[in-house]
Design a binder for these strands. Sequence first.
RNA 1: GCCCGGAUGGUGGAACUGGUAGACACGCAGGACUUAAAAUCCUGUGACCAUUGCGGUCGUGCGGGUUCAAGUCCCGCUCCGGGUACCA
Length: 851
Amino acid sequence: MSKRMGYDFIEIEKKWRKYWSVNNTFRAENKSTKPKFYVLDMFPYPSGQGLHVGHPLGYIASDIYSRYKRLKGFNVLHPMGYDAFGLPAEQYAIETGQHPAITTDGNIERYRKQLELLGFSFDWEREVRTCEPGYYKWTQWIFMQLFKSWYNKKTDKAEPIEALVKSFSKSGTSEVEAHSSEAIEFTADEWLAKSEHEKQETLLHYRLAYLSEAFVNWCPELGTVLANEEVKDGLSERGGFPVERRMMKQWLLRITAYADRLLAGLNEIEWSDALREMQKNWIGKSKGASMRFSVEGSEEKIEVFTTRPDTIFGATFMVLAPEHEMVEKICSEDRKEAVDGYVEQTKKRSERERMAEVKQVSGEFTGAFAIHPFSSEKIPIWISDYVLVGYGTGAIMAVPSGDQRDWEFATHFDIPIVAVISNSDPSKGANEDKDGVMINSDFLNGLKIPEAINTIIDRLEKDQIGEARTNYKLRDSVFSRQRYWGEPFPIYYKDGMPYALGENQLPLKLPDVDKYLPTETGDAPLGRAKNWITEDGLPLDLNTMPGWAGSSWYYLRYMDPGNPDALASKEAIDYWQNVDLYIGGAEHATGHLLYVRFWTKFLYDLGIVPFNEPMKKLVNQGMILGPGGEKMSKSKGNVINPDDLVLKYGADTLRMYEMFLGPLEDSKPWDTHGIEGVFKFLNKLWKLYDDVEDSEPDQEALTALHKTIKKVEGDIENMSFNTSISAFMICVNELSQAKCNSKSILTDLAIIISPFAPHIAEELWEKLGHTESISFSTYPDYDEKYLQRATYEYPVSFNGKVRFKIELSVELSAAEIEREVLEHETSKKWLDGNAPKRVIVVPQRIVNIVV
RNA sequence: GCCCGGAUGGUGGAACUGGUAGACACGCAGGACUUAAAAUCCUGUGACCAUUGCGGUCGUGCGGGUUCAAGUCCCGCUCCGGGUACCA
């Protein structure tokens, strides 16, 4: 017992890693008498680089939380897996011919080893890999359900497409209120008269997963399209290659049908304000009106969207996006050359160039005129790239007195400006404020802006030239990629129309190809696969799904990872419900975190999940920067590898040090020097257990322990791990000082530190004579009675400046405290014979004397 | 431009709902142990003045304000980080 051994972290950590693995210590059962708690990390893409010290930060925090919750009596689900489809493995395959599955498997092995080294309490039996057929079968299945569903605005949920077909057969579109690509109307007879091809074509306008010609972000370098959130500053997020706009036939998901629910749900979840704000802006809901303008000498109407229909009388011109389909139709002969030139120029310029020239005003007059619906005046129609095709209707009524961009355009091209709101000065700039009254506005004159908006909308609706409308910035998501390493679409084509495979044909396995490149005819890589056809010989879709497909529902698969009959059993989903705590990076704000909410709401509509939001609480861990404060990257050569540190100090030291660096959510630079302090601390902790005795603990030790229990418990609940490490250091310093060797104190200490430093805690626990893992113990309750002190050292200040301290009994009343303080020698010195003007006594806080 | 954060010693960071600013570490300096080094332990460490002792003045990015009392609250700036970008 008295034999002293050093802290041999290498042996200790090896021993417990093996123990946990052999005994399946962290296996989570899908039913329990204990309350459930689901802690999830954003699963990693297994890159060839391996982990650096920044990656485990969130995993350490979630692991501490998981282990803590177990000690608090919860049945904890804490799984890990891999987001295994993705571009880097495919790029590597293109370069080397190596099948991406092989590269990916190798990378996963490496990740797994690194993760195991850090002692995480994952239930490894639940590991998932999105690239495995057993997993992507269900990704394909969910896609198929989206394809087979439409969004019913009446019930505000997704419903089977058969119901829509039935309604069409019975009463055409008259009874249907759906989210659709475009407003179409037909009768039951017209529907029934449609050919199969026409019917399918029509249904695509309603399906939640649909094929459509759309402007997409095409990346020639990657040979694929990208979603809006995969493009940053006109370059691809992965690889940094230029991206251009191109019209292509693609799969899209009708996420816009869920815009309002995605917005409303933000109020129900415990996510950071910043993150919810980002999603809110991304959805970009704005209220206004749409109205149709006639075009002089033409049957065509141009529809515009505006948030300020009240300023209609200030509309002195109209602008179409250069890509607007009407441009060609309305353009006059004499303007054709100039207009075509401008359109060409816009097409050629990349997104990036367009953004760089934001401030430059450019545009061309089409030679056509719209007719003002109330004044009947002629309004010239221009094109300019400051109007975007993708937003609203791709056309605006320009009100230069009320919109700064319109004002700049009008000023540049010498177009008249009419003020329509009092206190505007059109010679200086636009008045975008929403106060003032209407002027120069016919029947709106004298109205305040909100009244004017209501009045004009009523009038538009009465005249049937417009209506109130809500617009969203959110676009339907392009869901297909012309790549190899992803989920194949469970879709075949007949007569050029897409049909879903039977559910019994899932998974549709990714076929082998000779090369991971597009075909000679420009088809996606799957075009190289032999026999890529159905049993009936019909061609299968050549696209694959984007990286975020598998990650949009993975949290459900962990609940029941091996299930061959469902994405997870109903029992498992009902038991585990949604994620209680989700930890990951903020960079997924408008991508993954929006899609996973979308898919969850869809699965809710299908009755598969009983909740509307996937993650109740979300915490974004900050980034760990290189020692110089820069992002860690291979090219900068400042990557710190956790394996080296584990070798030198052990995983427990690394875990605690990463937490000690600072608040979880902040970004902070890495400084390897500081790790010594934590290492010394663990050595000190180890020494405390050298000569444990079954003796009665003294008051001091009890106070040290109980204040630490209380502090650490509160800190974990607040995710303030850095301060709990400090608390442990203080506690161990105090116990060492007091030469505490009381078994009862050291037992509780081992338990409360075990979430942070699990290996050493298990070893000490065993030294104390226990035979079962410390994870099965119970978090001790602190007792207030050990925290109460008989005296308090009051800081006494004069005019707010602390002059001396006085130790007084906590039992004293405010009056007694005042008397004691004023009688003190130093008080007399500071009063200098004067009577105090006022004395403030805050019991157990402070005394302040105003002189 | 707009929307969010943030700014505290040489460094990372503490400070609960306004109540002892700088906890806990790193670094640095001095000391003990040692033939020596490592490890360990002890002491000091915001700045300035005083140092014989007591002590004093200033201090949380800058300028104002509220209060007995402000790192914390209010008003006006500066700088840094993140998001977003012609969104009608």
